[in-house]
Amino acid sequence: MEAQQMALENNTNGTAGKGSRKAVIKIKDAYKSFGDNHVLNGFNMVLYEGENLVVMGKSGSGKSVMIKCLVGLMQPDRGYVEVMGREISTLDQKTLDELRSDIGFLFQGSALYDSMTVRENLEFPMRRHQKKLGDFSDTTSLVMEALENVGLAHAIDLMPSELSGGMKRRVALARTLILKPKIILYDEPTSGLDPITAKEIIELMRSIQKKYGTSSLIITHDVDCARVISERMILLVDGINYAEGSYNELSQSTDPKVEAFFKK
């Protein structure tokens, strides 16, 4: 346990030491509890520019809480959270909103706005970020581009209730991409989807990452998803970054708690 912790730190330092990649997200000693339920217990994490990091954990292990702390939807009780060089807790609403426009967030249940069409859903993030997009008049082409990226250009005037679960997820992805974020946070991107659709979504995520060169933080409990997409993995157990490494490294671990994730 002690040794592994050391190894992790070495690894982290080692990667940073290469100097090839810059950290875009840093979490240090984050604590968060809901009553007696200690969700985060001194969590540490770093996301480097352009990498795909998978954070795995059981349901209720605090993955979603962690990811929400990154965009300021929740505040950690204690600890340091930094996104793109800015500490989240010190930002005012305006700067936070500006920062958020650089972060895409794909929600667990797609979180499409039920009362709006697909087009309106995609246009919604653009309402407050005109500056970033420059010319606002051409929203339609932007919407079309984003929809074409996910292969749903024909669904532009449908309501979310008329879409299947996979289509919803793709529309949500398109909405996440519309502001061309530098970082994309995926909260359980494949949850509630059949394996084939899940695979499609994962492929889509990979193609997007290649196309736009974004950094991705993927939260999941789906091992297959992690295997396909991850460059690096962090296992979140008992509120701490229990183990860290590549999929192959971790899948061969003998630690019982790590092994539990990869058991079929």
Binding site: K68, V71, L73, Q93, D97, R100, S101, I103, F105, F107, Q108, G109, S110, A111, L112, Y113, D114, S115, F124, P125, R127, R128, H129, R175, L179
Partner: peptide, 21 residues
């Protein structure tokens, strides 16, 4: 009911993240 379901399906969070209060 509307706001409740929006809260439950994280639509409210999604809104906040996309820069709309």
């Amino acid at each position: 009911a509307e706001l409740g379901s929006m809260r439950v399906t994280e639509q409210i969070d999604a809104m906040e993240v996309s820069g709309t209060n």
